[in-house]
């Protein structure tokens, strides 16, 4: 099993790399090279920070084509994490309106600050959708680590699992070969490692 973490200069891949190894994947590589990416069994799109900047870097490093061919043409598995999960969606309102990769029917908006602090930081309970592969064998309410100011919403059934922080938002989704987690599985102790193991072995 070869997993490639997409390298576009956004975010800490240190913990992700060691979490994947801990979860049983011995062949983990970091790359932005088209050919190498196509040889992966599965890929992970990480990311923290600004949506527009991330999209700029995806374009600068010619990753749009790599991702499109891998995910849409070949229908191979991808997991987006945090900002990576968001840019798989249609668009975000961070810095005006900006299109994402548009693989998933989800839009990204800033949290309403109805009396809650922003960013949403810490472990929060996710209502795990029993239909999903990634959350298999995890309890109905499972704690995962979140750190974000923007949230994803969707009007389509993308097998979402919901989290609540003054309002409901998408904690994770999986549709066909595309999965995304708003939270960081690599920073979520045993629950996160279980999810990554499910991604490696079952997704």
């Amino acid at each position: 099993m070869k997993i490639i973490i997409i390298d576009y200069g956004m975010g800490n891949i240190h913990s992700l790399n060691s979490a994947l190894i801990e979860s049983g994947c011995t062949n983990v590589k970091l790359s932005s090279d088209y050919k190498l990416i196509q040889t992966a069994d599965k890929i992970i799109l990480p990311g923290v920070g600004n949506f527009s900047k991330a999209m700029d870097l995806i374009k600068i490093r010619n990753l749009e084509e790599s991702l499109y061919d891998f995910v849409v043409v070949k229908q191979k598995p991808i997991l987006g994490i945090c900002l990576g999960m968001q840019i798989l969606g249609l668009s975000s309102t961070e810095d005006g309106k900006r299109d994402g990769l548009r693989f998933i029917n989800g839009v990204v908006e800033r949290f309403n600050s109805n009396g809650v602090k922003i960013p949403h930081v810490g472990y929060n309970q996710v209502q795990t959708n029993p239909q999903t592969v990634l959350l298999k064998s995890l309890p109905e309410l499972s704690d995962f680590y979140f750190t974000h100011s923007y949230k994803m919403l969707s009007d389509e059934d993308i097998n979402q699992s919901i989290c609540h922080y003054s309002e409901d938002f998408i904690a994770c989704y999986e549709k066909d070969n595309i999965a995304g987690t708003q939270f960081h599985p690599e920073l979520s102790q045993k629950n996160g490692l279980t999810l990554l193991k499910n991604f490696i072995e079952k997704f």
Binding site: H14, S15, S18, A19, E22, Y145, T147, H184, E186, L187, S188, Q189, K190, G192, L193
Partner: peptide
């Protein structure tokens, strides 16, 4: 820092 984060699956 690199040595501390190794095998620690929480935010640092």
């Amino acid at each position: 820092v690199s040595r501390l984060v190794e095998g620690v699956f929480i935010p640092v």
